[in-house]
């Protein structure tokens, strides 16, 4: 059996009066890649943001049920501390308008590290883990905005790694990238899963099949409220789904 890293119990989320997620209970295993799939608007991004409390920033959001990290209620953790532990990579690469070096050093700096040697070390290590070091090592002073989209996204991953999180949330990290850059990101996710718990939202079934150990299928009906239909090992979801809707979705009959 796997250890559980993240868990939700009867978790519901409302945007004002609109219920976006309903009664979601899931146990996300430690140091594995878990994919969240499902049709557009079923609440995958919303659910992902629940783990680093980014939904707190949206006015009018309230929740029911609980979200646990390592068995602890995340609403009892200081959100700033939580986000240092749970990193996030966004769908659209969002480098800061700073040099590559400063982009990566940003997290360590805000957590209080000043020593330049140590920062250099972290920058190099993070860029290496994000498979970007060789491409940028001679140009660390260049603006992060001058990188290609795929490089920017890997820089954002490196930036998240530099804070030493234990969880990385990725919201369609390859959505704006070409197939080659996408493969690089997927390889990277695969490598990272040895040491990190990764939760990734994707619309790409092949991608889920390639990178994810576990897959959760979300679905929504006319009420537009997202529900968790099925959660299992990716193999099982793809070869013998228990629910009809899962089968229809992954075989491309809707969604």
């Amino acid at each position: 059996m796997n250890d559980t890293k993240l868990e939700t119990i009867n978790y519901s989320l409302y945007y004002g009066k609109f219920r976006a997620l309903k009664d979601i209970s899931i146990k996300i295993p430690k140091n594995k890649v878990t994919a969240l799939i499902g049709p557009s608007g079923c609440g995958k991004s919303t659910f992902l943001r629940s783990f680093n409390r980014m939904n707190d920033l949206i006015p009018g959001v309230h929740t029911e049920g609980s979200v646990l990290i390592d068995g602890e209620d995340i609403f009892k953790v200081d959100p700033v501390a939580l986000r240092q532990n749970v990193g996030m990579v966004f769908q659209k690469p969002n480098p800061f308008p700073k040099s590559i070096f400063e982009n990566i050093a940003y997290g360590p700096r805000v957590t209080g590290l000043k020593d330049h040697h140590k920062l250099e070390e972290i920058v190099e290590r993070s860029l290496r883990s994000a498979a970007l070091w060789d491409e940028v090592k001679d140009n660390l002073g260049k603006s992060g905005l001058d990188l290609s989209g795929g490089q920017q996204q890997r820089m954002c991953i490196a930036r998240a790694l530099a804070v030493e999180p234990t969880v990385i949330l990725m919201d369609e990290p390859a959505a704006s990238l070409d197939p080659i850059a996408t493969l690089k990101i997927e390889d990277l996710i695969h490598e990272l899963s040895a040491n990190y718990t990764i939760v990734i939202v994707t619309h790409n079934m092949q991608q889920a099949g390639r990178v994810a150990d576990f897959t959760a299928f979300f679905y929504t009906d006319e009420s537009r409220t997202g529900q968790l239909v099925e959660f299992d090992e990716t193999k099982k979801i793809f070869t013998s789904p228990r629910d009809r809707r899962t089968e229809d979705y992954i075989t491309g009959r809707f969604g």
């Binding site: 920033l57 700033v80 986000r83 996030m88 969002n94 800061f96 930036r159």
Partner: peptide, 13 residues
């Protein structure tokens, strides 16, 4: 807002 979200998500106050 991407900058703000990016920074907050890294654990900045």
């Amino acid at each position: 807002d991407d900058y703000r979200r990016g920074s907050l998500a890294l654990g900045a106050t």
